[in-house]
Design a binder for these strands. Structure first.
Length: 405
RNA sequence: GCCGGGGUAGGGUAGUUGGUCAUCCUAUGGGACUGUGGAUCCCACGACCCGGGUUCAAAUCUCGGCCCCGGCCCCA
């Protein structure tokens, strides 16, 4: 038996890698157009960074280990905490708001299934240092722009934990947590059982789950959170972003404090969530000043599962030559590469002329640039279109023009 | 961690009531073909997921493990 790759990891073939890189670059281009700058953080962190906000319980889902110096280390399971740690360590005096994006691999020790791997990639954004609704609306609009740019139709749902917690205010914290969990799972029956003794809370919560924004304000009153959501409605209308209000969104995370949102795409089975985010307070947990922030992360692998955008074809040229003119062939290849930036291959296997053409076909070359004694005598090359079979002896500069289309 | 389905050359497969040398397609390398590829033909290459058990004999039956697929739990 040959060596296997670890469970839940993947290899990517050249075609897959090309597509992944292309989609990544499109997302990156949008983030940069919106004025966001890229950051990188370590692949592993002290485990504490992840347990501090989520408790020891999450260690079970981390790739965590002791290093040779006895330090408790964990591979990052997400990037919001590392980026906020970095903000506190390195950027806390940078002018606010700070607009950051990242694209990195993350690791979770979980049972792999469709759209869920032990190593996976996240493209995310953190908008640090503004608690205003304009910031939240921008984060949502940016997420929507990225997803739609790569041709994915997704449903966007926005909720608000402040509103929900307001309703649950009188319950003890354990009850609150359980209620939020059931709500996130859309387990209305379970909620009914849990809140059987608090019928007032139960009625209001169940009403809220189905409520739109205007109904919500009659259930919980004109609170600040409701007012914020109404402002956001106006802003998102200006952005042209369509969404649904869903107070049932709880996001398993404790650190979200206000607005939360999720995006779902069809065709992904049980793991249909492709993006999640919201407003959180983490900086002070990591020893920084209180800094209102919001952000989101897109599940890159899930997005790729349903993304049908294909990278544009980059023309490939094979220099095909007769054995007595290797030097000239190499010179032509160099001029195609360095001079013209064309993707160019040349035989390095000692193949005969006919075999070289055959191989050029096999690797999907778009053109063959043929170099032989006749071409050299004429100071030209023969450009052969591998698809049509048409060929013509022309100058190298003209050949480049045609190759580039 | 739990439930179910699955694992035969690089990819796709036949064979599974145990019994010659494990089938075919494709891909790959070479040749027929010394300045013209895609066709055809020939040759080569290459597999029973791993380990234990039953048996004269295991790809086939059995147990354990690993991995893949779908779902549950979870999803910070």
């Amino acid at each position: 038996m040959k060596l296997q790759r670890p469970r839940g990891t993947r290899d990517f073939t050249p075609a897959e890698t090309e597509k992944r890189r292309y989609i990544e670059n499109r997302m990156r281009a949008i983030a940069e157009k919106w004025g966001y700058v890229e950051v990188k953080t370590p692949t592993f962190e002290n485990s504490e960074l992840f347990t501090i906000k989520s408790g020891e319980a999450i260690l079970g889902e981390l790739y965590a280990f002791k290093d040779k110096g006895g330090r408790e280390i964990a591979l990052r399971p997400e990037l919001t905490a590392p980026v906020l740690r970095m903000y506190v360590n390195e950027m806390s005096v940078s002018p606010k708001p700070i607009k950051l994006y990242y694209f990195e691999n993350c690791f979770r020790y979980e049972r792999p299934q469709k759209g869920r791997f032990r190593e996976f990639w996240q493209f995310g954004v953190e908008l640090i240092g503004s608690g205003r609704v304009e910031a939240e609306a921008e984060a949502i609009a940016l997420a929507a722009a990225m997803v739609s740019d790569i041709g994915i139709e997704a449903d966007l749902c926005i909720g608000h934990l402040g509103v929900v917690r307001g309703v649950l205010h009188d319950l003890d914290s354990q009850m609150q947590a359980e209620a939020m969990r059931l709500m996130d799972k859309k387990d209305l029956e379970g909620l009914g059982v849990l809140l059987a003794d608090d019928s007032d809370v139960k009625d209001r919560l169940l009403a809220l789950i189905d409520a739109d924004l205007d109904e919500a304000s009659s259930i919980v009153g004109e609170t600040g959170a409701i007012e914020q959501l109404k402002q956001m409605r106006t802003l998102l209308d200006h952005y042209g972003v369509e969404y649904k209000v869903d107070f049932g969104i709880a996001r398993g995370l404790d650190y979200y404090t206000g607005m939360v949102f999720e995006m779902y795409a069809a065709g992904l089975g049980a793991q249909n969530q492709i993006c999640g985010g919201g407003t959180y307070r983490l900086a002070q947990l990591f020893g920084g000043a209180e800094t209102p922030s919001c952000g989101f992360a897109i599940g890159f692998d899930r997005v790729l599962e349903v993304c049908e955008v294909e990278p544009p074809n980059k023309p490939t040229v094979a220099v095909v030559y007769l054995p007595d003119v290797v030097e000239d062939a190499i010179r032509v290849a160099s001029r195609l590469r360095e001079g013209a930036g064309v993707r160019t291959t040349i035989d390095i296997s000692g193949r005969k002329f006919g075999q070289q053409l055959k191989h050029a076909d096999a690797i999907g070359a778009d053109y063959a640039v043929i170099v032989g004694a006749q071409e050299i005598a004429a100071g030209m090359v023969t450009l052969r279109d591998m698809r049509t079979g048409e060929q013509e002896m022309i100058g190298l500069a003209d050949a480049v023009l045609r190759i580039r289309g």
